[in-house]
Design a protein around this nucleic acid. Structure first.
Length: 605
RNA sequence: GCGGGUGUAGCUCAGUGGUUUAGAGCGCCGGCCUGUCACGCCGGAGGCCGCGGGUUCAAAUCCCGUCAUCCGCGCCA
């Protein structure tokens, strides 16, 4: 097909181009047929400009409809002052069309893609099914551009510091620990399977053994687990690994990389975000104690308080029996929550119960002279449980909670771990309700000193907090067998605004230590050889100390674009059950393919 | 696997057991319109009310089941 090729982008036209003859290639964004006048807003990647077509010169203008693909030749004209459109950057000019050619006619659209406001409401599956149209929207293009720019900046940063980008296999070995694998049948030996990698973890460690020293990859990872608004079955990580480093080296590099990349993007794209400063550091234990989780949102305070000591002898049965059973009475302060209606409070309790709380006890903090209040030192409290406590108990509790008049104290009485699971969500919820989670702030922090392993009640085994290649801290190594719970790991996460963003560690590089950790995890020697023999053997050939980290690219873009849904920052996402409405995948295979892979469906039932 | 929400025109939605013909805005089709830029005005077409079953004289509406999708829980070394 021959057609006139563009000489300039639609969005690049300014008054200084007036009088010039230009060729534009793009799509009809909107069409306005006034009878004697015909306007088309022509859109390409650079922006939108208004075309003027004289209906007396063109016989078939009705062929130009929204999203018709066009080549246009015309002259740039300055608009008269009364016809300037101040709403668009090209609003001072328009293009008088001499000739146009329809490069691709368009059917009526499945959704109003030129109207961003309406598009925000359109059924998402429909958008994904027609993603090639959805992505024409400037707001979607911008997401792709921010993403590309982020990756470009990451590459530039790492390339400049001696990192080597290496591709690792996509069809590889199944590792049943961890998430469920996506499996690929092996044609030449039916019954054997490849798996898609959950991460390039083992390959990147082998690259360290191989002497690459500094590796990175923009790596696709695959996990066949249930989705969430921030989880897709395939997602992208910046996977990086360094040799001859200690934890602090990785932390400094990653923090510097993040700040440079993110701050550069904020500036390039004019994002409404404050520049990212130095990362706070918090230990795992402290994060759990103060914020109830290993991914605290540090944009606001409201740490969890502990009233267990203050109330150890109280007469409130629920609290006392919890304490006697070894549980804790901890809570979150809700500033201004004393004014909540009974209905609001019961909503809050329902919220807590969805995360396993048995109940939510509350006390309203009021001035000491408030009527019908139970005294508590300089202050007083109200609430159905207030009568169970002495003034001394209440005063000590209020001191722990750092309470002020007008606060609502929300108590969860439970085992430490179970309480945390409720309290951290409650704290985030209160932060939301009080407007304390500032969208303009990107609060990155390090969470350090994770335990190496956690006791798994279900399997009755120790399971790795991070993954089985994480190095125990040298000073804790002697307790690996005798007291696994006290062993800390050289392991570090980056959390941003309460979302886990990156996870990394110094790895085990000694085969004897690796074998001990496998054994601790209940993996017997035969299984170790079968599943991880290549790692154990590789470590016997002069393996260097090494460590790395892997931040999520999708989530990084979500932080920058304020998207709460990961699908918005992925060009071709899956819907919730892993289905791809655009390609109609997964799909059945034909008889010959069944034959080739040598498998049959099991008989139903 | 579990809980909650949604499913009505191409899109977004309204419609709480009783009008003949299930409505609105946008879109679409036809007509008019020489300065629009969310153009405007007039007219028109378009519906297995997700699907299946049940209750009823009568179901978009009530009940049961099922499917899809969204959000969350479990899961995610």
């Amino acid at each position: 097909m021959s057609f006139p090729q563009r000489t300039i982008g639609c969005g690049d036209l300014r008054p200084d181009a007036a009088g010039r003859k230009v060729v534009l290639n793009g799509w009809a964004h909107r069409v306005r047929d006034l009878g004697g006048l015909f306007f088309v807003d022509l859109r390409d990647r650079s922006g939108i400009v208004q075309l003027f077509l004289d209906p007396s010169r063109f016989a078939n203008l009705q062929e130009i409809r929204p999203e018709t693909c066009l080549a246009v030749t015309g002259r740039v004209e300055r608009r008269s002052p009364d016809t300037v459109n101040p709403k668009i950057p090209t609003g001072e000019v328009e293009v008088l069309v001499d000739e146009y050619q329809v490069l691709g006619p368009s059917k009526p659209l499945p959704f109003p893609l030129s109207d961003e406001e309406q598009m925000a409401q359109v059924n998402e599956e429909l958008r994904i099914k027609h993603r090639y149209l959805d992505l024409r929207r400037p707001s979607m293009l911008r997401r792709l551009q921010i993403r590309a720019s982020a990756v470009r900046r990451i590459r530039a940063y790492l390339d400049a510091r001696g990192f080597l980008e290496v591709e690792t296999p996509i069809i590889t070995k199944s590792t049943p620990e961890g998430a469920r694998d996506y499996l690929v049948p092996y044609r030449l030996d039916p019954g054997k399977f490849y798996a898609l990698p959950q991460s390039p973890q083992q390959y990147k460690q082998l690259l360290m053994v191989a002497g690459v020293e500094r590796y990175y990859q923009i790596a696709k990872c695959f996990r066949d687990e249930s989705q969430r608004s921030d989880r897709q079955p395939e997602f992208t990580q910046l996977d990086l690994e360094m040799s001859f480093v200690v934890q602090e080296d990785v932390l400094q590099l990653m923090e510097d990389l993040t700040r440079q990349v993110v701050n550069g993007l904020i500036e390039d794209f004019g994002l409404d975000k404050r520049p990212v400063g130095p990362f706070a550091r918090i230990s795992y234990d402290e994060a759990m104690r103060l914020y109830g989780c290993d991914k605290p949102d540090l944009r606001f305070g409201l740490p969890i308080f502990d009233a267990t000591e203050a109330l150890s002898a109280c007469s409130f049965g629920v609290f006392r029996s919890t304490i006697e059973a070894g549980g804790r009475i901890r809570g979150v302060r809700y500033p201004g929550g004393a004014h909540l209606s009974r209905k609001d409070v019961s909503q809050l309790e329902a919220f807590a119960k969805t995360f396993g709380a048995k109940g939510l006890a509350t006390l309203s903090v009021v001035p000491s002279d408030a009527p019908d209040a139970v005294p508590a030192g300089d202050l007083a409290v109200k609430g159905s449980i207030a009568k169970f406590f002495t003034a001394e108990e209440l005063q000590a509790t209020l001191r722990e909670a750092d309470a002020e008049p007008g606060d609502l104290l929300c108590f969860v009485a439970d085992r430490y771990e179970a309480g945390n699971n409720v309290l951290y969500r409650l704290r985030n919820e209160i932060g939301d309700r009080c407007g304390l989670r500032d969208r303009r702030e990107l609060n990155f922090c390090w969470v350090l000193d994770f335990p190496l392993v956690e006791w798994d009640e279900e399997t009755g085994r120790w399971s790795p907090t991070h993954h089985p290649f994480t190095s125990p801290k040298a000073e804790d190594l002697p307790f690996l067998e005798s007291d696994p719970a006290r062993v800390r790991a050289d392991c570090y996460d980056i959390v941003c605004n309460g979302v886990e963003w990156a996870s990394g560690s110094i790895r085990i590089h000694r085969p004897d230590v690796q074998a001990r950790v496998f054994s601790l995890l209940g993996i017997d020697e035969a299984t170790q050889r079968e599943r991880f023999g290549h790692m154990l053997e590789a470590f016997q050939y002069g393996a260097p100390p090494h460590g790395g980290i892997a931040p999520g690219i999708d989530r990084l873009i979500m932080f920058l674009t304020d998207d709460e849904n990961i699908r918005e920052v992925i060009a071709f996402p899956k819907v919730g059950n892993g289905y791809d409405p655009l390609m109609d995948a997964p799909s059945p295979i034909d008889a010959q393919q069944w034959e080739e892979i040598g498998l049959r469906l099991a008989d139903p039932g």
